[in-house]
């Protein structure tokens, strides 16, 4: 994949995160933050498929954006391609586990 494509992906995922975080915060704020973060209220919110999907998408975009950012940081530090690929390989596995756990949480 070309570097410009990865950069576009970084920008787009960043914008998506911004939008989804705003939705997430608005959802938490309306009616009172303390009330909305109680266990019962959270469990109730997660029953809403639209909101659950929003959270999963937010997690997915965050993991994508951070992976690309870490990749860029390693490259800019002068690390070799092999080191970058190895680091991203390990990170990919960890992030995949996080994503699966996230999906299972809202399931």
């Amino acid at each position: 994949m070309r570097e410009s494509t990865l950069r576009e992906l970084t920008y787009l995922s960043g914008l998506a995160i911004l939008l989804l975080v705003i939705i997430h915060l608005v959802k938490l704020s309306v009616g009172g933050f303390t009330v909305n973060t109680s266990f019962s209220q959270v469990a109730l919110s997660l029953k809403d498929p639209a909101y659950s999907v929003t959270l999963i998408l937010l997690l997915a975009f965050i993991l994508t954006h951070s992976s690309l950012g870490i990749r860029r940081t390693l490259l800019d530090s002068g690390k070799s391609n092999l080191t970058v690929k190895a680091a991203l390989g390990i990170l990919g596995v960890v992030f995949l586990i996080i994503l699966v756990l996230g999906i299972l949480t809202v399931w």
């Binding site: 070309r2 570097e3 410009s4 990865l6 950069r7 490259l75 800019d76 391609n81």
Partner: peptide
């Protein structure tokens, strides 16, 4: 230029 160490490394 469209490579990891090309233009996209510029900050």
């Amino acid at each position: 230029l469209d490579t990891p160490n090309g233009v996209w490394s510029c900050r």
